[in-house]
Simulated assay, not measured.
Amino acid sequence: MTRPLALETDVGPTPPAEPTLGAITSTKPKSMFRLGLEVFVQNRLAVAGIVVVAVAVLFCFVGPLVYPTDQVTVHLLNANLPPGPGHPLGTDSSGYDVLGRLMVGGQVSLIVGFAAAAVATIVGTIWGAIAGFFGGIVDAVMMRIVDAILAIPILFLLLFLVTIVTPSLPVMIVVIGLTAWLVPARLVRGESLTLRVREYVQAVRVMGGSSWRSVTRHIMPNVIGTVIVNATFQVADAILLVAYLGFLGLGISPPATDWGGMLSKGTQFVFLNYWWLIYPPGIAIILVVVAVNLVGDGLRDSVEVRLQRR
């Protein structure tokens, strides 16, 4: 008698298939940088802000090469001409071409804005990181200095400084930068107070590492997200401060100018309806400041997502 063949159901359950390399790769978590970049790109206003800032930089620094004008010699015969052939945005009271003046003035505003923000960020980051890391009496003394300076209105302090020194491009960068480092210092100090108790910072001390190494290699790199976000807002604030000083007549010395100085000069002819002396610099200030703030908002969202992931 022959034995019946075994059915397939008698063999037993089929072992699960091993995951392929593609499946493993697809489940790999995204890096923090890529995650933050995706969040930033999804913010259309932040992307539009970057585009506006890039266009402003090209307009101010590449524009004079394409549309050269004389911004040194006064041409009184061409004073206050309305927009027309040869002068797309007209001329001002000194005969300067307004379009070319807008490019040259934008160079001063953007250079001072970005450079002063860099000075403020560097000084504030170092100050805040040292105060937060060491704590105790060092933190108390350093932050009381910050609080004392913050008690003075920044605009008043800025006006005082520019009246005792001759305004120039390097002077304005240093003056604005050294009056704007207080907010970054407080932000970095708060982050440092939380980071100094982390295990990897304590391990540096146990292994005999110096305090300077802990600050520069562990504290400051971990607050870089907060620093970058604040730096964008510092740029916007610096551009506004330059405009304030120029509007009050305390900006850079003629024949150089900035957008605030152009706006101040244009307001002298507001009752004569010389709109081409007011609207171009005013619109330029508003567009660039709003664009930089939008970029800062996008960076803030990206950093918050990265911190949640961490």
Rank of each mutant, 00 (worst) to 15 (best):
L307S: 14
L272H: 06
L299K: 03
Y67K: 06
F114S: 08
I122Q: 01
V62N: 05
L272K: 10
T163C: 12
V119H: 02
G106T: 08
G12D: 00
V290L: 15
F61M: 13
A129D: 05
V175N: 04
S168P: 06
P85A: 14
P255H: 04
V183C: 00
L169F: 10
A48N: 02
I130T: 10
W276E: 01
G106N: 11
F269W: 09
R44E: 04
E38P: 00
G128V: 00
V72Q: 14
S109H: 09
G260M: 04
K28P: 00
P184V: 04
T232A: 14
S210M: 09
S31L: 04
F40Q: 01
V188N: 10
L299M: 13
I252W: 03
P153Q: 06
I224K: 12
L157I: 04
G298N: 05
W259F: 03
A116K: 08
T9R: 15
A23F: 05
G208P: 11
L250S: 03
C60Y: 05
I286C: 13
V98A: 03
G266S: 08
W212F: 14
I278Y: 09
V197N: 13
L245N: 03
V108A: 08
C60M: 05
V175Q: 01
S94L: 15
T2Q: 04
A117V: 07
V72S: 13
G100D: 04
L307K: 15
V108N: 05
T163A: 15
L294N: 01
L65F: 13
I283M: 09
L169R: 03
A54F: 14
L287V: 12
V123H: 02
L187E: 03
A140K: 07
G95L: 02
L158A: 15
V171Y: 03
S94Y: 12
V62D: 05
R196S: 07
R196Q: 09
V295I: 15
A120H: 01
P221K: 07
V11E: 00
L5V: 13
A140H: 08
G260A: 10
V119E: 00
A256S: 14
I176Y: 00
A238N: 06
